[in-house]
Amino acid sequence: RPFRVCDHKRTIRKGLTAATRQELLAKALETLLLNGVLTLVLEEDGTAVDSEDFFQLLEDDTCLMVLQSGQSWS
């Protein structure tokens, strides 16, 4: 499924495809050149996407933000 993913400053944006939350996090880690533990949130309001069940309910092309440890949505 297609998703739009950005870093916490919204300066890097990438289109990625993934079937699972874990797959998307792995691709974001590599594509956005990030490291460490990542958190996935909705870009629009910062809602945490912390379960596979919730991830599977997201629509195609949902905009997501990837946060590294110590970063927060704004």
Rank of each mutant, 00 (worst) to 15 (best):
E30L: 05
L57W: 07
W73V: 00
L42V: 12
T62M: 07
T47S: 11
L42C: 10
D53Q: 12
G36N: 11
L42A: 03
L24C: 10
V49Q: 00
S69F: 06
C63M: 13
E23K: 02
G36P: 09
T31M: 15
E30Y: 05
L57F: 10
Q68E: 15
E52R: 01
G15P: 14
M65V: 11
D7A: 02
V41G: 12
E59I: 09
N35R: 12
T17N: 12
A26Q: 15
R4V: 09
E23L: 02
A28S: 13
L25G: 03
C63T: 08
L29M: 15
F54Q: 13
T20Q: 01
L24F: 11
D60H: 13
L16Q: 02
T17R: 08
D7S: 04
L32F: 14
T31Q: 15
G46H: 03
G70S: 06
T39V: 07
V49A: 02
S74T: 14
Q56L: 09
S51A: 07
L38I: 05
Q56M: 10
V49L: 03
L38P: 15
F54L: 14
L58M: 08
G46A: 03
E59V: 09
V5K: 01
E43K: 00
C6E: 00
V49W: 00
G70A: 05
L42W: 01
V66K: 02
W73Q: 05
R10V: 02
E52T: 01
S72G: 08
D7C: 02
D50C: 08
T17A: 09
L16N: 04
T47M: 09
K27E: 09
A48K: 14
S74F: 06
T62N: 07
L57S: 14
L42T: 12
V41I: 06
L38V: 11
M65P: 05
L58Q: 05
L33H: 15
V41N: 01
C63H: 12
E44I: 08
V49T: 01
T11K: 13
G70V: 01
E44Q: 10
P2Y: 15
P2N: 15
Q22P: 06
V41L: 04
G46C: 01
T20I: 04
F54N: 08
C6P: 06
L29Q: 15
L24G: 02
L24V: 12
L64R: 00
T17Y: 15
Q22Y: 10
S51F: 04
L58E: 04
N35P: 12
F54H: 14
N35K: 12
V37W: 08
E44V: 08
G70D: 15
E52W: 02
G15M: 13
L40C: 11
T47G: 07
L33K: 14
H8N: 10
A28N: 00
T39E: 13
Q71G: 02
T11I: 11
T31N: 10
C63W: 06
L32T: 09
L38A: 11
L24R: 00
F54S: 13
D61A: 08
L64G: 02
R21V: 04
R4N: 15
D45E: 07
G36H: 08
D50M: 08
D61N: 15
L16E: 01
T11M: 15
C6R: 03
Q22I: 10
L64D: 03
V49D: 15
F54A: 14
V41H: 05
Q71W: 00
D53I: 06
T11P: 00
G70Q: 07
T39C: 08
S74Y: 13
A26W: 13
S51W: 01
Q71K: 02
Q22D: 09
G46D: 01
L25Q: 11
S51Y: 07
V41M: 06
N35G: 07
A48D: 06
R13G: 09
G46F: 01
R4A: 12
R10W: 02
T39K: 11
T17V: 13
D53P: 07
K9M: 15
D45S: 10
S69M: 09
E59N: 09
D45T: 11
R13V: 14
E44T: 12
G36F: 03
Q22F: 10
F3K: 05
V37I: 09
K9A: 08
R10S: 03
Q68P: 05
N35T: 11
D61I: 00
Q68N: 07
E43H: 01
C63R: 10
V49N: 04
L24S: 03
L67Q: 03
L57V: 11
L32R: 00
D61P: 02
L38Q: 08
F54C: 14
C63N: 14
F3V: 03
Q56Y: 07
Q71R: 02
